[in-house]
Amino acid sequence: MQIEFTLNGRLIYEETSDDETLFHLLRRKGCYSVKCGCETENCGLCTVLVNGVSRLSCSYLAARADDCDVVTLEGVQKEAEEFGSFLAAEGAEQCGFCSPGLIMNVLAMEKELDSYEKEKVKEYLAGNLCRCSGYMGQLRAVEKYLSRGENRNEC
């Protein structure tokens, strides 16, 4: 079937099989930042934004993306680099395989939440598993990133 959607700001017309997942479609379209870690919707590696909402692309039908606005890390390189620099400053990207999914969800969280208490942040990001970092460094990076405006004023 034919679908039409916006991928990272560009209008795409694409032929997709009826049961293709968005994950497969995105990798097919060269969005290699999107990773698969589990196939059972537990790991968060395949997180992308669909109409601004963080979704697991591994369980999202490509057919349903018709008419939608899809954003992967490829489409938010500036933001990725900005948050990513906080992550790297902690050494918390480690192998980097889960970083794209985490970053997409951090960006969704930044937009959705109106305050960033530690427990709220942890709960929001609980669906993003990481096996390297033990999460503490990621959390330090997220906290520093979210309060970066405050620091800027001090300087």
């Binding site: 919707e41 537990n42 968060g44 997180t47 909402v53 963080s54 979704r55 697991l56 369980s59 999202y60 969800n105 969704a108 969280m109 709960e123 929001y124 990001l125 609980a126 669906g127 993003n128």
Partner: peptide, 12 residues
């Protein structure tokens, strides 16, 4: 709802 996997999962 809060314990069900993660926000992305609950968005689906």
């Amino acid at each position: 709802t809060r314990s069900i996997v993660g926000v992305q999962f609950r968005n689906g």
